[in-house]
Nucleic acid binder design. Structure first.
Lengths: 341, 341
DNA sequence: CTGAAAGCGCTAACAT
DNA sequence: ATGTTAGCGCTTTCAG
């Protein structure tokens, strides 16, 4: 009982391996219904499992989707992964996971791995993409017809289809939301602005805030390096207070920073939202793990993953080239921001 | 430039494919140094990438490690994944990720996938293991010599090697820690106790607390179902206060619950640690995303992942059967628990 | 509708 | 030290 192949099934059924292959591979090739049933039954009974390496070798394509992300220890990417797996489940494809935070300069290994396995598709987070990777993925698409899908923000000049979130307008909406509540002195607080998705948020804030305040907005942007973003929030709470400027609200780069800000403010007995309003970004789990719960901009990460995987699967089936989807941000109103009186 | 095989390299070098294979597959078979260098150079130049499906088909083994976990949206599993990927990186193996929270009843697909791909090894979280999966993994080990490694807690009667954390003694240590600080009225607070790793923690608490209080410990265990564990903590803060019992400390099932408890207590103006001590469990990011930062039991998840992957790789290379590792818990002293005066 | 046979790219005897 | 050759298990023409 060590290894059942189509050969064994064929023998047991008194048929040729060709016929067996036709039914077991799910081909639409005409096979008599009885024959088909016989084969299915015998296969079932013998516990036949197709050898995907043999199949892949033959058809020049593996049955895995590679997912390339910076990390998985961050709720955006974690949800993304969940969305992707949920969609892939039952589709016949499995997920290969590569973390670029680890592969760093060694994206070469990664790409060779993809090519050597002849992965059917690739879902890559924008923040994992660099020129080298982009070139290699284009190469893969050319020589192996690998389907590529980008997720997160739209990279300028990138020719791959993707599921894109509009961080710029998200940040703009958050800022406008505070402005509409009557706030005119708003700080932007953040840890390191070291990724494109963060630079864009900052730009969105500046855009909206400049419309209110004119050009000199730079000094209201508080950025600091700390071990964690939470600590950056705590530290910046101090710095904001020390500034002596009369801030009544802040927009945080993300919910981690927002929660840190909340904690930092609390140490100074500044009440949120009574004395100070905060709006976060991401709507990750942290936004609901604090009191007051954070008003924030939702980034529907799981849905982004789901859609990316769905698009990819469709491309794979129809052999048509995929199209891009743009996801609109949305402000989730909770308890951390109120009208200024 | 569509597809370079050893055949092409052989031709370009005026050698046989056998020789080319011998050097390019990393075999230790003797090949003249010059020849070796020539082949390497030409391969490099042509951008040769070995076809892993062909290789796998031939040697009856894929080059991927399957990682099976309930989910990835939880910092324990996220770090585990990171540890595994870090170790796998550069080893020639890639990570296939399966989430059982999604596969649920359909573990069959999963196992067939593993078999069909002839995965070289499997790392499976204890909480993803059920009888069916265990049987199937044993089968895999038998017919394909697949290496299996369990992580997290040791499952009774499970014959696979693993990297095990001792939750029981962790919970015992946390409780004893509070007792040593002089606390005699201690509550255990938790969301649903629906996984083995949680049942064990509860048992560990009871064991230590009963040593102090005798048998009637059940009523000091506060458990409730809420949407999130954070909320459970908040809710249970109320319930503890409403109990009228004179608690001075609590042990939380994990840091999420602990942070919720902190928030719930704060709403009642109960100060931590001045009025009430808390000790968490896991030492995940939340423990440092609150003030005061949580004293907690460290579960070194990334290291568990690293060790599991290392053991697996060693098994794969040496063909020797793996051994188990037991990891000792450790209380991390921060700010949320103090001596009772 | 079914079967015979070629071959995907690679490794590993078995020659030389 | 190098070459020849037989498959690994599968899909897919091409014949019947």
């Amino acid at each position: 009982m060590s290894k059942v192949t189509i050969r064994d099934i064929a023998q047991k059924c008194g048929l040729s391996i060709a016929t067996v292959s036709r039914v077991l591979s799910g081909s639409s090739y005409p096979v008599r219904l009885e024959t088909r049933k016989l084969i299915m039954d015998v296969a079932q009974e013998c516990g036949y499992v197709p050898n995907m390496l043999a199949r892949g070798l033959k058809i020049n394509k593996g049955n895995e989707i590679a997912v390339i992300l910076p990390s998985v220890q961050n709720s955006f990417y974690a949800s993304l992964v969940k969305g992707i797996e949920t969609t892939l489940h039952g589709s016949g494809y499995s997920m290969l996971l590569y973390l670029t935070e680890i592969h760093e300069e060694n994206t070469r290994h990664l790409v060779e791995s993809l090519q050597g396995k002849m992965v059917a598709g690739v879902i890559v987070a924008a923040d994992s993409m660099d020129d080298f990777l982009e070139k290699k993925l284009q190469h893969l698409r050319r020589i192996l017809n690998t389907k590529i899908m980008v997720v997160d923000h739209h990279i300028g000049g990138c020719t791959f289809p993707g599921v894109y979130f509009d961080y710029f307008s998200g940040a703009r909406m958050a800022t406008d939301y505070l402005i509409r509540l009557g706030h005119t002195n708003i700080a932007f607080v953040s840890g390191p602005v070291d990724r494109e998705t963060r630079r864009i948020r900052l730009a969105g804030f500046k855009f909206a805030y400049e419309a209110l305040r004119g050009k000199n907005v730079e000094e209201d942007c508080y950025i600091c390096e700390e071990e964690t973003e939470f600590k950056a929030g705590v530290t910046l709470a101090n710095r904001i207070i020390a500034s002596g400027k009369d801030y009544t609200a802040a927009m945080a780069m993300n919910d981690s920073v927002g929660v840190g800000l909340l904690a930092g403010l609390a140490e100074h007995r500044i009440r949120v939202p009574e004395d100070f309003s905060i709006v976060g970004f991401d709507d990750c789990i942290y936004a609901q793990m604090c009191s007051p719960m954070l008003t924030t901009v939702r980034v529907p990460s799981e849905r982004i993953g789901t859609m990316a995987a769905q698009n990819l699967l469709q491309e794979l089936r129809n052999q048509q080239s995929g199209s891009s989807v743009y996801i609109e941000p949305e402000v989730i109103e909770r308890k951390s921001a109120v009208k200024l009186d």
